[in-house]
Design a protein around this nucleic acid. Sequence first.
DNA 1: TTGTAAGCGTTATCAC
DNA 2: GTGATAACGCTTACAA
Lengths: 358, 358
Amino acid sequence: MSRSVPTIRDVAERAGVSPGTVSNVLGNRKPVDPVLAERVRRAAAELGYRVHRAASQLRSGRTKVVAVLVPGLENPFFTALVAALERCTRAEGYEIIVGSAGEDEDVEANRLSALLSWRPAGVVIVPCRDRFATRSLLVEERVPFVVVDRVADDIEADCVAIDNAAAAGAAAEHLIGLGHREILVAASTSQVANIRARCAGIREAVAGVPGGTVEILELGPTFETAAERMEARMRAGPLPSAAIALTNFTTLALLGSLTRFGVRVPDDLSLVGFDDYAWMQATTPSITAVRQPIDRMAAEAWRCLSARMAGSDAPWRRAEFAAELEIRQSTRPAVPAPGTSRREGKSEVRRVQQGRTT
Amino acid sequence: MSRSVPTIRDVAERAGVSPGTVSNVLGNRKPVDPVLAERVRRAAAELGYRVHRAASQLRSGRTKVVAVLVPGLENPFFTALVAALERCTRAEGYEIIVGSAGEDEDVEANRLSALLSWRPAGVVIVPCRDRFATRSLLVEERVPFVVVDRVADDIEADCVAIDNAAAAGAAAEHLIGLGHREILVAASTSQVANIRARCAGIREAVAGVPGGTVEILELGPTFETAAERMEARMRAGPLPSAAIALTNFTTLALLGSLTRFGVRVPDDLSLVGFDDYAWMQATTPSITAVRQPIDRMAAEAWRCLSARMAGSDAPWRRAEFAAELEIRQSTRPAVPAPGTSRREGKSEVRRVQQGRTT
DNA sequence: TTGTAAGCGTTATCAC
DNA sequence: GTGATAACGCTTACAA
């Protein structure tokens, strides 16, 4: 029948020492007599003492917390990023607090404000829009931060992303190499720089190809808009022989619409997806996809942030990783060469570009 | 060039009032002269003042934070749950802090301890094992908590889950109705009560069926073990005509192994998956699956927790929801009746059982 | 209605 | 190496 949550004074009393000594032992801040230290630890364990983070933070001004703000926890890319960041930060004794902005800039500002009231040591943000107004909040608060994934070209911040143009370009080159000439691109929106960069990469890859065309379709923010627009497109006329989806969301929307319209993959249309998830390997056909190295991106974001938290005032860094094209069964030659087996495209990994850091 | 983060005293000074008044205005606790209130709000806005949560919590003893601890953020079921909980709590001004236990009981204890050091107002936990040792931590801390998904039969806590036996039973009945007699069950592990209940539900459904058999395969914790064991099984002898996977993870593992071995779904084998995700609708064939009503489960968990946080000492509640069987193309009749179209199983929703609360 | 002051649990400073 | 003591920013009696 212990009364209430034990404080450091309870522990001190039980161990017969002062609160300061308990603090020194438990936070191993100063050397303490081993005998006393042991008594303190025993007392703490017996009482089930646990430091009161709020009090600790208030007094010390320091806190091992980083805030992570993403556009939406419904998107597996972001949850994977959060999970990866959690592993990085935990390894160094940091906690994360997560906010989800619902892909809405106003909500983003609210959430960020709420997260900042924790006075986190740093912030990792994937903004809803790459020119994000919330940046000013971060700057005013003087809190170190890193921008991931949706980074504008000239943003004044440490950034981590993939080389979007190269990643999407490699997908296009893969299709071109298979003999495809006309490519349909399923984009979410061109409001975001990374999507624009992916489009540009595809255009560039197709540019030199005789008869090469790129048709970009903006599918909008929801599955409903996506299905509607995709299916309107399908009713409007015949599809080209190949398509690239630029996000995991558009990959699903595109695949779903094709399925509903009876367009067979890869027989009628070769498909490259974006973001590589487990289901893409398990289905028939398995899906050729561009994979972002999420773990390495998270690690780099954490590295950047750690440096800033340690006081670095180096110029902004921009880390750009290479994505990998995972070639599977959803892409095949446009015009099967005679004698070519239908078992094209067994799994193989191809480096798009070496990772580099500017 | 503001110096540092503004405190309530800075706001008070600027507005020409006392800190207490600022607190009363910003937390609208006590009625304040509208003129002063306006001055305060303006001053706060101009300074970019934001309450210091740690200080506020320390003084008031209250904090609008709930901790959520799940076995792993890599699992989409848990991330969906977290996202749903985030929506519930935010609607009432609560923040969530999330912990991920890596499906390891020791990590779970560590993470929980770390989360508790924030002194959250409540905890939502999906334990790694349903007889979870960490329960005692929660009890000692006297913090209200709710257990979700992995609930043992006799756990002393508020619980939220689906009716596992009925959900899996309905999947089995669906297959039986299609003429299947022998059912392969892809389980993760039988260490957890909800999986055992799902197995029991299937056994019960098959029990009265002449020639009905149930073969349960434990696929283990990782994709590697799952692929290995599943493929060993496939080499050992012919598969039955139908299979049920009991988790989203085993659904993928099963599907992947079938694909690699050239077993066609649904032609060679009818498949029911567990947990319904977007990709299951988009693939060919689309996957018949048991869907857990995650949003409603989250809402119920939050309702329970709110009541406890408000001081309720009612007996433990156990909420059990009905899952839905989403029938799609991955299941088809065992022996196609003559004249039956191959376009069996267009999407349709079937209620397994009305939700009930004990 | 507003101001004043105490104190939440911890850590840091400073004597001892 | 250890103990007293003050202070972090806020909320809340209580006094005015």
